[in-house]
Simulated scan of single mutants.
Amino acid sequence: MAFPAASSVHLVLLAAFTAGASAATFTIVNNCGFTVWPAAIPVGGGLQLNPGQTWTLNVPAGTSSCRIWGRTGCSFNGGSGSCQTGDCAGALSCTLSGKPPTTLAEFSIGGATDFYDISVIDGYNLAMDFSCSNGDALRCRDSGCPDAYHQPGDRKTHSCSGNNNYQVIFCP
């Protein structure tokens, strides 16, 4: 009966490790004069965000290679449809990256340090601000935005201490 004891030890260690980590809260705001369909992977999926509406998304610590982007020109019937920009295989709740062009908010929620950036490598479709509660505010108003990655190898990644909150604003 060594297995139950070993499993109990692993559960206690897992609980202790998880207690030290916390989620980051992302507030996603649509300041556009039109509906935006934000998407988020690997957590969040996607939804409809009318002008002036906000979506709050909790991202667990240890979540890496994340993306948030705004889809435009969408039409959905239930959970399927299409978007003119940022479409993710016709799904309302995305499980894969959107089809270019997409202005991307990219991030990894670590523990002691988080990393975040804006990318227009996959094209530009919406003005966006992306900020950490105690870090740099990144701004992207057009396809030439200086705060964004334009090609692989650009050095535009920013860091923020862990346990912070973030804000993504479309059409700031």
Results as ranks from 00 to 15, higher is better:
Leu11Cys: 09
Cys145Gly: 08
Phe26Gly: 02
Phe34Met: 08
Asn50Met: 10
Gly46Asp: 07
Thr103Val: 06
Ala127Phe: 03
Gly70Leu: 04
Thr103Asp: 11
Thr157Tyr: 07
Phe34Glu: 15
Asn164Tyr: 00
Asp154Lys: 08
Asp87Gln: 03
Glu106Tyr: 08
Pro146Thr: 12
Pro101Ala: 15
Gly70Asp: 06
Gly90Ala: 07
Ser7Arg: 05
Leu13Glu: 15
Asp136Glu: 15
Asp129Lys: 11
Gln151Ser: 14
Ser161His: 07
Asp117Leu: 02
Asn164His: 09
Gly135Phe: 09
Pro4Val: 15
Thr25Val: 13
Trp55Glu: 05
Phe76Asp: 04
Ser119Asp: 08
Met1Ile: 12
Thr35His: 06
Ala2Ile: 10
Ile121Cys: 04
Gly162Ile: 06
Thr56Tyr: 05
Ile118Met: 09
Thr103Arg: 10
His150Lys: 10
Ala21Arg: 15
Ser119Asn: 04
Val36Gln: 04
Phe3Cys: 08
Asp142Lys: 01
Gly62Ala: 05
Asn31Pro: 02
Phe17Thr: 11
Asn58Tyr: 01
Ile121Thr: 13
Ala39Phe: 02
Ala91Thr: 11
Gly62Ile: 12
Ala105Thr: 03
Ala23Leu: 12
Arg141Pro: 00
Gly46Leu: 01
Cys140Ala: 07
Ser82Gly: 07
Gly111Phe: 13
Val9Pro: 03
Ala5Gly: 09
Pro100Asp: 03
Leu14Thr: 13
Val29Leu: 09
Cys145Met: 10
Val59Asn: 02
Gly44Leu: 00
Pro152Ala: 14
Ala5His: 13
Lys156Glu: 10
Leu13Met: 12
Arg141Ile: 03
Pro42Asp: 02
Ala16Thr: 14
Met128Gln: 11
Val12Asp: 13
Ser75Leu: 06
Gly78Phe: 08
Thr113His: 07
Phe3Pro: 00
Tyr149Met: 06
Val12Phe: 13
Asn164Lys: 14
Phe17Lys: 06
Val29Thr: 13
Ala89Gln: 09
Asp154Cys: 07
Ala61Pro: 00
Leu11Thr: 07
Phe76His: 02
Gly111Cys: 05
Gln167Ser: 12
Pro38Phe: 04
Thr56Met: 05
Cys160Thr: 03
Cys171Val: 04
Tyr116Phe: 15
